[in-house]
């Protein structure tokens, strides 16, 4: 069953994802990345609030949160890269399914930010 099947389900999952990433970086004392994750969380909450358009709410298919589970036990650099890679992939996958361009753009940007961390 696809669990990311509505606008709200996707945005809420993204918000929770960023909260987990923020907490993860806080525990390993990387405040820069923790703050960046918290900033994305705030932005995503605003996106969920401002871009839910009743007349274009449509079912979303083919996306499941089980494909984007993160392992927060691994605090090594490699572990951090895996988390960032999965987060980037999550945003890349879900953005096209959102039919409000402003929301889509915000998700794409979150994805790019995660991808940038992997590259750096």
């Amino acid at each position: 069953m696809a669990s990311l099947n509505t606008f709200g389900a996707i945005l809420t999952y993204a918000i929770e994802l960023e909260m987990q990433i923020r907490d993860y970086y806080q525990t390993i004392n990387n405040s820069e990345r923790a703050n960046a994750a918290d900033k994305r969380r705030g932005k995503l909450e605003r996106v969920r609030r401002e871009n839910v358009l009743e007349i274009t709410l449509e079912p979303i298919e083919g996306l499941d949160e089980s494909n984007y589970r993160l392992n927060f036990d691994d605090t090594s650099e490699a572990g951090q890269n895996v988390i960032e890679t999965i987060a980037a992939r999550f945003y890349e996958d879900v953005a096209p399914s959102i039919n409000v361009r402003q929301a889509q753009r915000a998700l794409e940007r979150c994805g790019k930010e995660h991808a940038k961390i992997v590259i750096s």
Binding site: G8, R49, L57
Partner: peptide, 27 residues
């Protein structure tokens, strides 16, 4: 705006609509 989620949730509970529909309504 500050009470956006709370209003949406109350509306779901009283009217039976989905949370996205309620958020859309508040918007």
């Amino acid at each position: 705006e500050d009470n956006f989620e709370k209003i949406s949730q109350v509306m779901v509970m009283e009217s039976g609509k989905t949370i996205d529909e309620a958020r859309g309504e508040v918007r």
